[in-house]
Computed example of a mutant assay.
Amino acid sequence: MAPRRNTGSTGTGRRADALSRERIVEAAVELLDTAGESGLTFRVLTERLATGAGAIYWHVANKGELLAAATEAVVAAALTAAPARAPRTPREAVRAVALGLYGAIDAHPWLAPQLAVQMPRDPVKSVTPRIYEAVGRQVRALGVPESAWFTGTSALVHYILGAAGQNAANGRAARAHVGTDRGEFLDSVSTAWEALDPGEYPFVRAVAKQLRDHDDTEQFLAGVDLILAGITALHAPGAGASD
């Protein structure tokens, strides 16, 4: 991490004290939500916070660090948001974690791309361990043997982040069709699928109606349940025994 830049000015020092890192990150998230990654600049950030660049650099060294901090803040909030009813089983807890991340990725269009970049680039930063810890504790609580903890947790994490990101992208694509709501968009796609060549696309034609009628959140959670069912069935006592 680059050292913080301090101008030595008493006024700047007072601004740095008054302007917390948390407030900077909060403003960065707001900018990312409204203007995207390209709209997040230190110039715009200083204008929004009514401060000087030195006060911001006191807390964050560069844009990369700021993006990482914004990502960590949103993920932390998503994972700590209390569900309406406390989960009673590991399966319910995994679903609660999945829904928290699903909602965050849907609400913050920049989050999925940042997770895709940051998790492999710097897996020791808090965002990766935080997500794996939230899911992995529940995989362990399912009674899965330790040798399968990482594989089972990775399967769930990859599905949750990938499916949530794809769903968010689909939602943005639907909204991009001016004057078209989600139902109209799905109906148009479903109609196009039904019109495909039956010899070349028998499966796609068969599921076209399911595409038209599906609920995104229910479909997402069904995928979580499928993976959980596979993990528990694969590692149930006697599952690997020969007949």
Rank of each mutant, 00 (worst) to 15 (best):
M1T: 13
P3S: 08
N6H: 12
T7P: 05
G8A: 09
T10K: 15
G11C: 10
G11Y: 11
T12F: 07
R14F: 13
D17W: 08
E22W: 12
R23C: 04
I24N: 04
E26N: 12
E30P: 01
G36A: 02
G39H: 00
T41I: 03
V44K: 14
T46L: 01
T46A: 15
L49Y: 09
A50L: 09
G52S: 12
Y57S: 13
W58A: 15
H59P: 04
A61K: 00
N62P: 00
N62R: 01
K63S: 07
E65P: 02
E65A: 10
A69K: 07
A76H: 14
A78H: 03
T80S: 15
A82C: 04
A84R: 09
A84N: 08
A86W: 07
T89A: 00
R91L: 05
A96H: 01
A98E: 05
G100H: 00
Y102C: 08
D106M: 06
W110M: 06
A112C: 09
P113T: 02
Q114F: 12
A116W: 09
D122Y: 02
V124A: 13
K125F: 01
P129T: 08
I131P: 06
Y132G: 15
E133N: 13
V135W: 06
G136L: 05
R137Y: 01
Q138M: 09
A141T: 07
L142E: 01
L142Y: 07
G143Y: 07
V144Q: 06
P145H: 03
A148K: 08
W149I: 01
L156A: 07
G162D: 06
G165R: 06
G165F: 03
Q166G: 13
A169F: 06
A169R: 07
G171K: 03
R172D: 10
A173M: 11
R175P: 02
A176G: 06
V178N: 00
G179F: 02
G179T: 05
T180F: 08
T180R: 15
E184P: 08
F185R: 02
L186S: 12
S188T: 15
W193A: 13
L196E: 15
E200C: 04
V204D: 06
A208H: 03
K209P: 14
K209G: 15
H214N: 13
E218H: 10
I227W: 03
A229M: 01
L234E: 09
A236V: 01
A239Y: 10
G240D: 02
G240P: 06
A241V: 09
S242M: 09
S242D: 12
